[in-house]
Structure formats: C-alpha cells, structure tokens
Computed example of a mutant assay.
Amino acid sequence: MTPLALTPPAQEPVSLSEARLFLRLDQTAEDDLLGTLITAARLMVEAASGRLLVDQTWRIVIDRWPESGEIRLPLSPVGAITAARVYDVLGVAQPVAAEALQLDRAADPPVVRVVAEVPEIGRSRGAIEIDVVAGFGATAVAVPVLLRQAVLRLAGRWFERRGDVVGRDAEALPPEIMALIAPFRRARL
C-alpha cells in the first residue's frame, strides 16, 4: 500500500497572524520564514502524531483487493472517499461505484470495506487507486487545540532559536511538544 499526497491543505493550522502574536512580532518582514516554519512544524506534528491536521487529498494505491474485504488506511482521520478506480488488463481506469466501498471513520486506523461488486484488476502492481480526504477538517478551527498549540510552539521555538535546535528537533521533538501530541498518537503493539 502506497499513500501519495495529491493536494496540500488549503491553509495551515496556525495562521501567520497567530504566530506573530505568539512571538510578539509587530513587523511582517519575516513572514516568509515564519510561514515556512509553520509548514515544517505541521509536517513534524503530523508525523509524530500519525494524524493529518487540515484536510488534504491523498491517493492510496494497492495491488489487489484484500481477501478480508477490508483495507486499513495508513492515514488518519479520513473524512471521505472522493474517487476509486481499478486498472483493467489494457491499463484503462475503470471507476469503482461509490456504493461499492464503505468508509469506517470511527475505526483507528480508518477502514475501507468492499461491500459490493468491484471491477477486476488487470495488472499485478498498482491496480487499485482510492482517493481520500484526510484531516480533522477544512479549516484550522477543526484541528484539536493541543495539536494547533504543538505546531505554534514548535514553529516559535525554531523561529527564536534559528538553526540552533532544528537538527536535534528533527531527531526527537522536545518533551513539551511531545506532551501536546501524546493524546493523539496511535498506540503501537
């Protein structure tokens, strides 16, 4: 199973104005840097938590339909399946009927169940593509406050300590950031 990012979030979970207020910045001269740090912090928080924050479109590529009829998605939370297709023996994409796949949003990780007839696959690799929208919602308001705080504090940390800790933070996030993320991390057995 391969997840491919198709479209990034339309907005970040923390705005430039929120970050400037947090950092007590009156000027906008460093907005480009701050915006980059916010994006980088979001990506780090998403990786550490195993959750996508603001809605973004992803494609899940699999080789064949599972015998169990259940596909456990590597992304969380997932709000909707937007499209699905199967490549036939000629390499032509055949659409999968919307009613053939059922998304269980409550499962963690989310599960797609095959509940009706689906087209036969025609190639051995990457035969099935399922497009999904993953994230807590379309706007920053939908993102849990603790995760927004983690992004804000991490971006602020990097802004204030420019270059001093980014390398170490990439290896292991600071404990105060991990404490904010901890309630959202998926348990690994």
Rank of each mutant, 00 (worst) to 15 (best):
T28K: 12
E30T: 02
E30C: 07
D31A: 09
L33R: 13
L33G: 15
L34A: 04
L34F: 05
G35D: 03
T36Y: 08
L37G: 09
I38V: 11
T39N: 06
A40K: 14
A41K: 08
A41S: 14
R42Y: 07
R42A: 15
V45W: 04
E46K: 01
A47P: 06
A47S: 13
A47M: 03
S49G: 08
L52F: 15
L53M: 12
L53H: 02
T57A: 04
T57P: 00
W58F: 02
R59W: 07
D63P: 06
D63Y: 08
E67V: 14
R72Y: 14
L73R: 13
L75S: 06
L75E: 03
L75V: 12
L75C: 02
S76A: 15
G79W: 06
I81Y: 03
T82P: 15
A83C: 02
A84L: 14
A84V: 11
A84Q: 11
V86Y: 02
V89L: 10
L90M: 10
G91M: 01
Q94S: 04
V96C: 07
A97Q: 13
E99S: 00
E99Q: 10
E99G: 00
Q102Y: 04
L103W: 06
L103S: 03
D104P: 01
A107Q: 11
D108L: 10
P109F: 06
P110W: 15
P110C: 10
V111S: 05
R113K: 15
V114T: 13
V118P: 11
V118I: 04
P119N: 07
E120S: 08
E120W: 00
I121D: 05
G122R: 05
G126H: 05
A127M: 06
I128K: 08
I130W: 08
D131P: 00
D131L: 05
V132I: 12
V132S: 06
V133D: 01
A134C: 09
G135N: 05
G135V: 06
F136S: 07
G137C: 05
A138G: 04
T139C: 01
A140C: 10
V145F: 04
